Simulated assay, not measured.
Amino acid sequence: MIFTVNGAAKTFDIQHLIIAGWTARDMASVQEHIDELAEIGVAPPSTVPLFYRASNLLVTQASQVEVLSADTSGEVEPLIIKADGKLYLGIGSDHTDRKLEAYSVAHSKQVSAKPVSTELWDFSEVADHLDDLTIESWVDEGEGWVQYQKGSLANIRPLTELIEKGNLLDGSAMLCGTCPAIGGVRRTEKFKMSIHDPILNRTISCEYLSKELPIVS
């Protein structure tokens, strides 16, 4: 995959995909997310955080993805990529089948593409102010963009901790957790997300469409 890093194109070979779940720093927030998903039938995790494995083929920069269910939705997450011993930070969506999630979170992670940004930051440039970074997402339910998520990385376990516990190898991409959905988890075709660095005054943005395929039997 080709990403832009500091204005230059760089090729990354994504061999492993890890999805870190239940990563809120405040355990009350973890419980809030557990309760949020319990409303749609998702069983609580065995431990927190958890590091789910999924196919590297799910990582995509496509502006449109196809899903098999009317029960999928996106969620904004920091994206860490490790390559040649270096770390990079971007943004991605852990697009998930919520109905399947009620059966198995691990299985639900495997059935939807994971759209990611085309731009990355050198992790070393943000390592000293990670808690100042913010992530946001918006959905369009037919009347224009409305805020769907908003949070600070200060609300997520330190990314350095997740990197260590997730055992990132070269060629790994990891989605690092999210923040609660404003108004509850729900399906929309249009999804937009960003990560903002107020210290260096820059933003990475990404948006995509998820189109439903017909279900035949």
Rank of each mutant, 00 (worst) to 15 (best):
I2Q: 13
N6R: 15
A8G: 07
F12T: 05
Q15A: 12
L17G: 00
G21L: 02
W22E: 01
M27R: 11
M27D: 11
V30C: 10
E32I: 02
H33I: 03
I34M: 08
A38V: 05
A43R: 07
A43W: 09
A43T: 15
A43D: 13
V48L: 05
P49F: 01
F51G: 01
Y52R: 13
S55K: 07
S55I: 07
S55C: 10
L57K: 12
L57Q: 09
L58Q: 04
T60L: 06
E66F: 14
E66A: 09
E66C: 14
V67N: 03
L68E: 13
S69H: 07
A70V: 15
E75D: 12
P78E: 06
P78I: 04
I80F: 02
K82W: 03
A83G: 09
G85E: 08
K86F: 11
L87V: 06
D97Y: 12
K99D: 12
K99H: 10
E101S: 13
E101R: 11
Y103P: 04
Y103G: 10
S108Q: 02
V111E: 04
V111G: 04
A113Y: 01
P115M: 08
V116I: 14
S117L: 02
L120P: 01
E125G: 12
A127Q: 14
D128V: 07
H129L: 05
D132I: 05
D132Q: 07
L133M: 11
E136L: 08
D140Q: 09
D140H: 09
G142S: 10
V146I: 06
Q147P: 13
Q147A: 09
K150A: 12
G151S: 05
L153P: 00
N155R: 09
N155L: 09
I156N: 01
R157K: 13
T160Y: 11
T160H: 14
L162D: 02
E164L: 10
G166S: 07
N167Y: 14
G171M: 04
C179Y: 01
I182R: 08
I182T: 12
F191C: 07
K192P: 06
S194R: 10
I195Q: 00
H196Y: 10
P198V: 10
I199C: 14
I199D: 06
I199R: 15
L200Q: 15
L200G: 13
T203N: 15
T203E: 15
S205I: 04
C206H: 11
E207W: 14
E207Y: 15
Y208A: 04
L209K: 12
S210C: 11
